[in-house]
């Protein structure tokens, strides 16, 4: 029996999907949380196999992952969308989801897919549309590793949208020193692209405290 907690609105398509999942013989629905705070408490309890969220709650999952600070989720985090398109899969993977299911179609199929995600037999990264993208799970759902105050300044300035030339001017450094520092920040944080550093730095400024 799969123990699933839902988090999201009780009404609408997601609520309807949750009720369908609840009626499935291989699922025990432990509840439906409609606030991020309650969801965080459920997540910390660790007494469930999977947490399902509507795609609209992707940023809630991102902030939950940041506050939890765990590299590997337990339970599995699964996004629910009417239809899974490549942009939805990319955003979900970056926010820290492990898997994804569609509300349209057979609920048996969706539950089977949740079972596969929980068992580790299927992940978002294994989706064909993710092939060739330099994306890792939870890219946006973690704190940056910052070694010193100058790295913090560089991350802030990149997150502000300044060019390398502008940053060199602000810091009073050579362009070479700025680029070497950015390269080191990217490598330390296992990021492939400068924009990823900017987005993570900028987005973390809005993370609420769930503790």
């Amino acid at each position: 029996m799969l123990r699933i907690q839902a988090a999201g609105p009780t009404a609408g398509q997601f609520g309807s999907f949750v009720r369908n999942v609840d009626s499935h013989t291989s699922v025990e629905l432990t509840g439906l949380s409609s606030t991020a705070t309650h969801t965080a408490e459920i997540l910390k309890s660790g007494n469930i196999d999977a947490l399902i969220f509507p795609f609209e709650w992707a940023d809630v999952v991102r902030t939950l992952e940041v506050s939890r600070g765990a590299p590997k989720p337990d339970p599995a985090l699964i996004v629910v969308a009417e239809r899974l398109s490549p942009p939805i899969l990319v955003r979900s993977l970056a926010c820290g989801f492990d898997g994804a299911v569609e509300t349209q179609g057979d609920v048996d199929h969706a539950v089977q897919k949740i079972h596969k995600v929980v068992a580790g037999d299927w992940t978002l990264e294994s989706e064909p549309s993710m092939a060739g993208l330099d994306l890792r799970r939870g890219l946006l759902a973690r704190e940056l590793i910052i070694e010193d105050i100058n790295d913090r300044h560089i991350a802030d300035l990149v997150g502000t949208g300044l060019t390398d030339d502008d940053i060199a001017l602000v810091m009073g450094w050579s362009i070479q020193k700025v680029r070497n520092r950015i390269e080191n920040l990217l490598a330390t944080n296992e990021l492939a692209y400068r924009t990823q550093l900017a987005v993570i730095r900028a987005s973390l400024l809005k993370v609420p405290d769930f503790s």
Partner: peptide, 17 residues
């Protein structure tokens, strides 16, 4: 002064030391 440098490629996105 410094023998290490970073090449920036792919429209300013990829940094290689």
């Amino acid at each position: 002064d410094d023998p290490e440098f970073t090449e920036v490629t792919r429209n300013g996105e990829v940094y290689t030391l």
